[in-house]
Design a binder for these strands. Structure first.
Lengths: 250, 250
DNA sequence: CGCGATTTTATGTATAGACATATAGAGACG
DNA sequence: CGTCTCTATATGTCTATACATAAAATCGCG
């Protein structure tokens, strides 16, 4: 009765399950450098006796570490701490409307230009499509609390995304519309810096020659190009944050 | 008999193991939109009979999808396709020396300045450390095929990384040294754009006012600041690539 | 009808055992 | 000494079963 009837096991406050304990334990040793890159992790049968559990259990812990790229498993040889040859950071690029809303600022959207046309050579090159038919070209501006936040220049392949023909991009930003209506499988972001030309400066309300951060995003579904977009942000006010989390959660 | 002795199962050329087939199958339906966000994935017992396998097998497939954040599993309710609120892209930021070598270009390194000092207020703010003792301040330049590639301005907390006192940063770039000698648990990259001032322009051999891509990286071990670094790249020549991979590998 | 207690159910963790498979390392051979 | 073959072995997958746990669904009672 009352709170917490006495269970058979009677364990401490919160037991994070055995396989998670094992995973966290190994993770800790890797992250603190106790087991440096290249170090061979104890064999499964050693971990079995060390933790007093079955092989499936230690295997589950090791599999998750492998999936998270912290270790590498090789048959017959064992499991090894991976050598981090690069920093792998997760860059979360929000839909701009969602991003501005998340900041607690009021989102503004303005369609500057929207036209449908048969793809010319430039369009095809930009999309990376071989023989494209029709495309939609969109230019628009996002603002936060009335201040220009980013300008967007987008191309949508109408053959790959026929539903886009019916969308009202005056009412909904193309990024949001696409995110919610079009499934995609691959995306690539190329990040660079430019200085504002006259047109960009006017649209973003900054000085000509001011720095701008550029994101060129290409999106595909099963290797077929869907859309190409260039986002231009005032360079010093906007920052992209990429966070690396060595460990896994919970 | 010769090739491929008749096994009991007799399967096609390459069998990607059952649980992977299941995972890829579900993944495909999610990625193509057949199962949109919020859709409930068939219960484990349904998948068991659909694929004719045990529960552990379908569970393994679903667990991997959950770890990859493609689905969400809720006890008693079932497993659901996750609603992607943002684009999550993996940004691989290589060690600069490794990056240049990988491009097949010759790496050049030049230590501009290296000094040890007691942290002043600016240093402490930059590191985000409360009461810092000594720090090492480093300025250096990386080049590829003799052309300036990036300039680096770094601060290392000597209390957190005492080994750094013995490192020879004239011989080895601090980024490489740290990556190979100092374990860390968290890193944050802030990416922005600026225009080159006189000093940066001279160091990178570009015009004053030319755009530069800036990466500010902070690294911690268990919430303790280790180092803060600012990398400045010529903005139009250098691009950061962040790739999203909807699916998991093989 | 509302609400708390009970039941049901889908997932979560764990087990012991089985067979598959890649491969490091040993041994055979030239 | 190199190379080729074989074998031992660690991981990879899968099964059938068991119990734990969280929460949805239902029941029962006032």
């Amino acid at each position: 009765m009352s709170l917490a009837t006495d269970r058979g096991k009677l364990q401490s406050a919160d037991k994070p399950t055995l396989y998670k304990q094992i995973r966290i334990d190994i993770e800790r040793r890797i992250l603190t450098g106790e087991w440096p890159p290249g170090h061979r992790i104890p064999f499964e049968h050693e971990l079995m006796s060390r933790y007093g559990c079955s092989r499936m259990t230690v295997s589950k812990a090791l599999s998750e570490l492998a999936q998270a790229d912290l270790i590498e498993r090789r048959r017959k040889a064992g499991s090894f701490v991976r050598r981090p040859t690069f920093l792998s950071a997760v860059l979360k690029i929000a839909d701009i409307r969602a991003e501005i809303n998340a900041l607690g600022r009021s989102y503004g959207y303005e369609l500057i230009q929207c036209s449908r046309r048969t793809a010319n050579a430039t369009d095809r090159a930009r999309l990376g499509a071989g023989k494209t038919g029709k495309v939609i070209a969109i230019a628009c501006r996002h603002s936060a609390d009335g201040v220009p936040f980013a300008i967007e220049d987008r191309l949508i392949d109408l053959d790959a995304v026929p539903e886009a023909a019916a969308a009202d991009f005056a009412a909904e930003p193309p990024g949001s519309w696409l995110l919610h209506h079009v499934p995609w499988t691959e995306a690539e972001h190329s990040i660079s810096a430019i200085v504002a030309d006259e047109q960009a400066a006017a649209a973003l309300d900054i000085a000509i020659g001011a720095p701008c951060l550029v994101i060129d995003r290409h999106t595909w579904r099963s290797a077929r190009p869907l859309t190409a977009v260039r986002l231009l942000y005032p360079g010093e006010s906007h920052k992209l944050i990429a966070r690396f989390k060595g460990g896994l959660e919970g």
